[in-house]
Design a binder for these strands. Sequence first.
DNA 1: GATGCGTGGAG
DNA 2: TCTCCAAGCAT
Length: 308
Amino acid sequence: MTATTEDAATAAPDHDRTALHAPVVDWFDAHARDLPWRRPEAGAWGVMVSEFMLQQTPVSRVLPVYEQWLERWPRPADLAAEPSGEAVRAWGRLGYPRRALRLHGAAAAITERHGGDVPKGHAQLLALPGVGEYTAAAVASFAYGQRHAVLDTNVRRVFARAVNGRQYPPNATTAAERKLARALVPADDATAARWAAATMELGALVCTARTPDCGRCPIADRCAWQQAGAPEYEGPPRRTQTYAGTDRQVRGRLLAVLRESHTPVPQAVLDRVWHEPVQRARALDGLVADGLVEPLAGGEYRLPQSRG
DNA sequence: GATGCGTGGAG
DNA sequence: TCTCCAAGCAT
């Protein structure tokens, strides 16, 4: 890395590195949403479930599914005892149903390897299916109050603006962003965990992607992007994902039929969801390959029955 | 590092 | 209508 962002982060005097902490954390104390996974009774499992569901999915859509999920499966072992297809069914229309399969797999691993308790170690968390860098740090921080750099899309955007003076962060997370995030983590565990939640919340509620509400931002007076006159993003266009006509749409339709049915579904029924046979077959094969669908003898299909 | 992976709300 | 985007992960 040649450049300036890293050096700026590491070379900054201590009062600069910590200057954002108090206003952001104080703002969080006053304006944080009362979300169920932030309550003490949620526990580490509640935090983990919420993190899986929130991967690429808005809070408003997660809320009802989260409540039902925790009521039905209050501990990892409860989920692990059920067929994986039940997790896929309960996932409903949250999207990216492979997350349901991975959460079921994580519950099984927690039950087998960790005595039924969500592990505390970042490395142990990272080893669970569906847990990447962000989710491991988030669970360790939110559930266990540990000191980690928690870098999600909200935090990346906040830092891009407040520190780097850009409207948006790069398309892919860079080493410079990770280094900056690490340099900005407060020294003590409790404040670090608070900072992680606060920077995410700021990005979600105020420093939003489309129309940031800078008038309500606790650090607007020291925001590099504001000070630079809020210049427009310049960089490679952020790829806009098409959906209509893709395999994703076909997979979604196929799985919707299977979720609704509690008996095996004949091929002929699945054939009605999409007119083009080659794409239809490819989508179904993909679902089977992903473990989201189980083929039966006689051309019938159902949600998977495996218990991990 | 680039892709594929769902779904629906907001502007 | 159409585009953007919403607490990423695995390959």
